[in-house]
């Protein structure tokens, strides 16, 4: 199956490949992300879309757990409190650590949970990914505690579709449902608004996830949200 996805400059053909499949044959190609070279062949190491840009062949993952990278803005939930900070679940292979020093205001060491306690949801940035674990920071604009609202989870590889080109999709949902939405790159999405707005926003997000491979999605979502609004009024 060949999936066509429009990129900014041009239409590019991307082929869905499975592990162990030969993506392309020839001396000229170089193995990129998730590929290897055996003799003349470039072989996929992972399920995803194969993209050939110039001489480099790489695989764009379409499924699987979130892989944390430095600089990712994610949403996490406090799982545990230690003497020196908060342990957070951000999805993915490891739990992450938010040091006490990152708190925006003074926190009494004997009373760490006055800023965030177990079960609280925070939007944070990944400051470091090392062998021992993941470190988080709050020292950027827009980060901090997310109070009330609800948290939903989607596959992290669908996040670019939820956001759309320059945020077109997410802004559309925000406007139409009058809901505050924060999307973490780990696929955790926090919604806050009135009950109907939250519900509609969640439905729209699930629709995008289901139909993430089809084109003209922004129009479809606009119709979906617009139609509902007319019925309600």
């Amino acid at each position: 199956m060949i999936t066509k996805i429009e990129t900014k400059e041009e239409k590019q053909e991307r082929k869905l490949v499975i592990p162990g499949e030969t993506v392309v044959e020839g001396e000229d190609y170089l193995p990129g992300d998730f590929t290897r070279k055996e003799g003349n062949e470039i072989i996929a190491n992972r399920y995803g879309l194969a993209e050939i840009s110039g001489r480099v062949v790489r695989i764009i993952p379409i499924s699987g757990v979130f892989e944390p990278r430095r600089g990712n803005t994610v949403i996490g939930r406090v799982e545990d409190i230690t003497f020196s900070g908060w342990i957070m679940n951000i999805g993915g292979p490891y739990t992450a650590f938010l040091p006490l020093m990152e708190s925006p205001r003074f926190v009494n060491k004997n009373n760490i949970d006055e800023f965030a306690t177990i079960g609280d949801v925070l939007s944070v940035k990944i400051s470091n990914v090392k062998k021992g674990g993941i470190d988080l920071t709050l020292k950027f604009r827009g980060l901090g505690k997310l109070e009330s609202g609800r948290l939903i989870k989607i596959n992290s590889h669908k996040v670019p579709r939820i956001i759309g080109k320059e945020g077109s999709m997410i802004n559309l949902i925000k406007d139409k449902t009058k809901t505050e939405i924060t999307v973490g790159q780990n696929g955790f999405i926090w919604l806050k608004g009135d009950i109907d707005g939250e519900r509609k926003a969640e439905e729209a997000i699930n629709l995008i996830v289901e139909e993430s491979t089809s084109s003209g999605l922004t129009d479809k979502i606009e119709r979906f949200l617009g139609g509902n609004e007319e019925n309600d009024s």
């Binding site: 998730f34 190491n45 992972r46 399920y47 699987g64 590889h157």
Partner: peptide
């Protein structure tokens, strides 16, 4: 396993 995006040499 392949569907879960696990890195595999082959199937």
């Amino acid at each position: 396993l392949a569907h879960a995006g696990i890195v595999m040499k082959e199937m």
